[in-house]
């Protein structure tokens, strides 16, 4: 985000990539605790359904499996976008970035559909602690995906102005790290929240 004189040998050309990666990995380490807290809350409340539906009443495993698969495959397109950016193949990179964003949006659409289905079955945030913790956990994951989609689209468009080639603006690799992290959180959620509860 800035440039600084690092060492006498290294006038005005600090290793910004290194700094950004350290910052991103530290942030992702922190995010582990964030999602850990949400998942823990869910596990404490997973059977506290009150008069409302339980996990096995509402979960549609085949549907969620497909949307999980879509998010998983968006990691492939993301890493291919990064590969193209390393080779400075900007056109290719934009294609893969937008493909990743599209897959992310499909996942989000699936989540919206799933949420409305659950609400139709009588499960809302106010039904039971199970409902509260499920919607808040998956909702915050969805918010992370949405932010990722915004960053992907913004990066794809910013690349037209040539800013990426200067190493300024947002960095495809950094966004990639974020995106893959959101994906691995879903890997955990899919197993712990969905598959283990039905």
């Amino acid at each position: 985000m800035t440039t600084e004189t690092l060492t006498p040998q290294d006038h005005g050309a600090p290793d910004m990539d290194n700094m950004r990666k350290i910052a991103m990995w530290a942030f992702l380490g922190s995010e582990c605790l964030f999602f850990g807290s949400l998942i823990t809350t869910f596990l404490v409340y997973r059977t506290r359904v009150g008069d409302g539906p339980s996990a096995s009443d509402v979960f549609d495993i085949p549907f969620t499996s497909v949307s999980s698969f879509i998010l998983l495959m968006s990691s492939l397109t993301m890493v291919l976008a990064h590969y193209s950016s390393v080779r400075k193949d900007w056109r290719q990179m934009r294609v893969w970035l937008l493909a990743t964003a599209l897959l992310g949006m499909v996942f989000l659409a699936g989540q919206v559909f799933e949420f409305t289905e659950f609400v139709d079955h009588g499960l809302t945030v106010t039904t039971s602690p199970f409902g509260s913790s499920f919607f808040v956990l998956t909702g915050f994951h969805g918010a992370h995906v949405a932010i990722g989609v915004l960053m992907l689209v913004a990066t794809a468009f910013m690349s037209y102005s040539g800013r990426l080639s200067d190493g300024e603006g947002m960095n495809v690799e950094i966004i990639g790290l974020y995106w893959h992290f959101v994906d691995i959180v879903w890997i955990v959620i899919f197993t712990v929240v969905y598959l283990l509860q039905v």
């Binding site: 809350t41 409340y45 506290r48 359904v49 009150g50 106010t126 039971s128 602690p129 409902g131 509260s132 913790s133 808040v136």
Partner: peptide, 8 residues
């Protein structure tokens, strides 16, 4: 209902 003891 995270911390609402009356509702679980």
């Amino acid at each position: 209902l995270f911390f609402d003891a009356a509702n679980g």
